[in-house]
């Protein structure tokens, strides 16, 4: 039991770290696509780590099953949401930073 608690707290701390780094990236990254990359880190790995940590705290009952369902749902939906967002932005004509940079050097666009 003690060993499981230690593993669970390590997973929780890792989840908090990834969630925090995702939030920092959301504010600090320069354009839409890099930001969505940071946000999807929060969505996917942070959520998986935190729910994994909570799974180790349960005593294998109904709560375990519910957490597993939530985990599966998140693993399917959050990458899809990030993908749909990025694809819609791409179809809407949004360029990545690398594509807009040459114009910056000429000083024609912002």
């Amino acid at each position: 039991m003690d060993f499981l608690d230690i593993v669970s707290s390590i997973l929780l701390l890792a989840g908090v770290f990834f969630g925090f780094s995702g939030a920092v990236g959301l504010f600090r990254f320069p354009d839409f696509f890099t930001r969505i990359h940071a946000a999807s880190v929060t969505d996917s790995i942070a959520a998986i780590l935190i729910i994994g940590a909570l799974l180790l705290q349960t005593s294998f009952d109904l709560n375990t099953a519910k957490l597993v369902f939530i985990l599966l749902f998140l693993m399917v939906t959050s990458p899809t949401a990030s993908h749909a967002l990025a694809k819609s932005a791409r179809h809407g004509g949004l360029l990545t930073l690398a594509e807009t940079r040459p114009q910056d050097k000429q000083g024609s666009a912002k």
């Binding site: 749902f73 399917v76 939906t77 899809t80 993908h83 749909a84 694809k87 179809h91």
Partner: peptide, 12 residues
């Protein structure tokens, strides 16, 4: 055009 969305929606 969103193939991924189609598949995931059919699962969800």
């Amino acid at each position: 055009s969103h193939r991924v969305l189609h598949v995931v929606a059919k699962i969800i």
